[in-house]
Write a protein that binds this DNA or RNA. Structure first.
Length: 593
RNA sequence: GCGUUCGUAGCUCAGCUGGAUAGAGCGACGGACUUCGAAUCCGUAGGUCGCAGGUUCGAUUCCUGUCGGACGCACCA
């Protein structure tokens, strides 16, 4: 599809060029990029549209007249071009009606295959994606769920578009916040384990982090003691390290369980405790080269005021590194470990300023790849009641939320009397819950703050993940019935496909086919601007299109067996496309639900 | 104060490098289950795209200003 589009674009562009030449105008008509190809709003207008307004002034003709002349020029080129479709002037637009049989053929060839996507605009690009990056003092919450699904989905989209992707996670396993939960555990824990208290291990650690607030009330020196614990940790005190290791293990293992449940994983884990001293040497080198400067008290600074930022501290007066110093070191290390064409940080938009400074500092240190760093900033997830706050207990815990959604989905399955039809209702319910949650989080563009309305997300009607899952399940259902009737012909040899394609070259099947064909441009768009929301919009469009199609176009109960067989092939392609789309959006695909 | 970002239907959101009549879902109202699964579908109502300028043949989209919200401007992470 992409190639055919390009072919028509080139043909139209060269027609415009010769039009300019024959009018005796030597003015340039701009490069081919200035000719935009779009989709006409209605199928009956054509499959590709070129608006010609921009050429009116250059050619001293109305766009309507230009369209007519371009159409004439293109028609004159004969079969060599016209076997790929027909050009038609439609007002100020030059539209193309593509050769539908060949397009249908391409779609049907998807069949039940997994990897039919041939369009790979990101081929050979190496992209590293960093996401999640939890603290080890508490379990994941709703905000992490948005981060995780954004990072995972974007990685899958980039991979599908042909890129080599490396997913990395940086665990924040050191610092004062970790020491607080350790201190509270020393005071209240009594040496108990998560098993002793019957808690998931990360929730167990989180409980003690919350208990630190109680400790502060009981003991005014609690903050001081936490600082003391941090000093002990940094000096390598064995007892402190052993407690730290134990609690971190609990936290990380619990968090990994949630990842597995969510269907998220990583190619590499970095631990801040192992990387936090990196970057110091880089800063000292930069200082020696005059990129940074030393203050009278001994601290090291960078002045970014000329690019609209402030002066930033890079090393404390005692020579220790801070947050941004670590990120400098980590970025440089990564560029050595796995040279990338691009590094994407999926981090909340609160830290936008931090990343602008980081990228600029790396630029000043002379790393040419600093221009290939990208902060995928996402907005906060708010509740109808306001912002989530740890201290006010308004944080929505990730595991609890998935549990609640699962329970609700199960109730829905039972209410519809489908519990005996879906296999294990609990398993299916959790997959529906994840579909609901992930789609809800991905449909909004990342940059925006979003409102998480538990009620709406718990409802499975409308523009939701379960709706998309349902349409996938319906496609499967038709295919199952088709097998029983013996109408389905799955052979993928060229002649049988093109025979089926001819049957499907009609007005009623076209809107669905056109939608299936636009998958690659949705994928390309989502990968280019790094927004899974574009793929989510495509998923909904496909679901709605399929729903409308099978309502009006009987597949099995059709008097024409050839049409039935052809449409069954089409349903097969629909199913295959849904599987791909669901995979990209972290929505579990369901054969029945 | 400075910076970043957002403002589209009653609510939650789409609208891709400026292009053909600004779209979904929820909610409201009215319809469709002897028919491939009604977690569905169809119809109706609902918009000065925050406001004011500017660029352009053309602006929800780009620029400037302005109003409103969010976030940021630590020797915290």
């Amino acid at each position: 599809m992409t190639d055919i589009k390009l072919l028509w674009k080139e043909a139209t562009y060269s027609a415009l060029k010769s039009l300019a030449a024959s009018s005796g105008l030597n003015e340039s008509i701009g490069d081919i990029e200035s000719l935009v190809a779009e989709y006409p709003p209605k199928p009956e207008l054509g499959d590709i549209g070129f608006p010609l307004f921009g050429y009116a002034k250059l050619l001293r003709k109305s766009p309507v007249a230009i369209a007519i002349e371009v159409e004439k020029l293109l028609l004159a080129r004969g079969e060599e071009l016209l076997r790929y479709g027909r050009p038609k002037a439609v007002g100020p637009y030059l539209n193309i009606f593509l050769d539908r049989v060949s397009i249908v053929g391409d779609i049907l060839a998807r069949g039940a295959k997994k990897n039919w996507n041939a369009s790979q605009p990101f081929e050979s690009r190496r992209v590293m994606v960093e996401f999640s990056c939890p603290n080890t003092n508490k379990p994941l919450h709703l905000g992490h769920l948005r981060n995780n699904v954004l990072g995972e989905s974007l990685s899958r989209i980039l991979k599908a578009a042909g890129a080599q992707v490396k997913k990395v996670n940086l665990i924040n396993d050191r610092g004062i916040h970790i020491c607080k939960s350790m201190l509270a555990y020393q005071v209240y824990g009594g040496g108990r384990s998560p098993e002793d208290e019957g808690l998931k291990s990360d929730h167990f650690v989180g409980k003690y982090y919350v208990l630190f607030n109680q400790l502060k009330k009981e003991n005014p020196k609690a903050e001081e003691k936490a600082q003391e614990l941090l000093r002990l940790w940094e000096s390598g005190d064995p007892e402190t390290l052993s407690l730290w290791k134990k609690m971190n293990h609990w936290a990380v293992e619990g968090i990994k369980t949630t990842y597995a449940r969510q269907g998220v994983d990583f190619d590499d884990y970095y631990f801040e405790s192992l990387t936090y001293t990196r970057g110091k040497q880089e800063v000292l080198d930069g200082l020696a080269r005059g990129v940074f400067y030393r203050d009278l008290d001994g601290s090291v600074w960078v002045d970014l005021e000329d690019v609209g930022l402030d002066k930033k501290v890079l090393l404390r007066k005692d020579g220790t590194s801070i947050y941004i110093t670590q990120d400098i070191g980590t970025a440089i290390q990564r560029s050595k470990d796995w040279p990338f064409d691009e590094l994407v940080y999926v981090v909340a938009s609160e830290q936008h300023y931090h990343f602008r400074a980081l990228f600029e500092i790396l630029n000043r240190l002379g790393y040419s790849w600093s221009k290939n760093l990208f902060h995928l900033a996402y907005g906060l997830v708010n509740l109808p009641s306001g912002r989530m706050k740890t201290r006010e207990g308004t944080v929505v815990d990730a595991d609890d939320l998935i549990d609640e959604l699962t329970a609700l989905a199960k109730k829905e399955i039972e209410a519809k009397g489908r519990d005996s039809l879906v296999g294990d209702p609990t398993v299916v319910a959790e997959r529906v819950a994840l579909g609901a949650l992930h789609y809800y989080l991905l449909q909004t563009s990342p940059t925006k703050d979003m409102l998480y309305d538990p009620e709406q997300s718990l409802s499975f009607t409308g523009n939701t993940g379960p709706y998309i899952q349902y349409m996938g399940a319906r496609a499967c259902s038709i295919l199952r019935k088709g097998k029983e009737t013996g109408l389905s012909q799955d052979s993928l040899d060229e002649s049988s496909i093109s025979a089926a394609a001819k049957v499907l070259d009609n007005g009623s099947d076209w809107p669905l086919i056109r939608c299936l064909a636009s998958f690659s441009s949705a994928l390309e768009g989502a990968a280019r601007v790094k927004e899974p929301s574009i793929m989510a919009a495509y998923a909904h469009e496909l679901a709605a299109e399929f729903s409308a199609w099978y309502r009006d176009n009987p597949v099995l109960s059709n008097p024409d067996p050839a049409l039935s067989a052809g449409r069954l092939r089409l349903v097969n392609a629909v199913k295959s496309t849904f599987e791909q789309v669901c995979e990209l959006l972290c929505i579990p695909f369901l054969e029945v639900m």
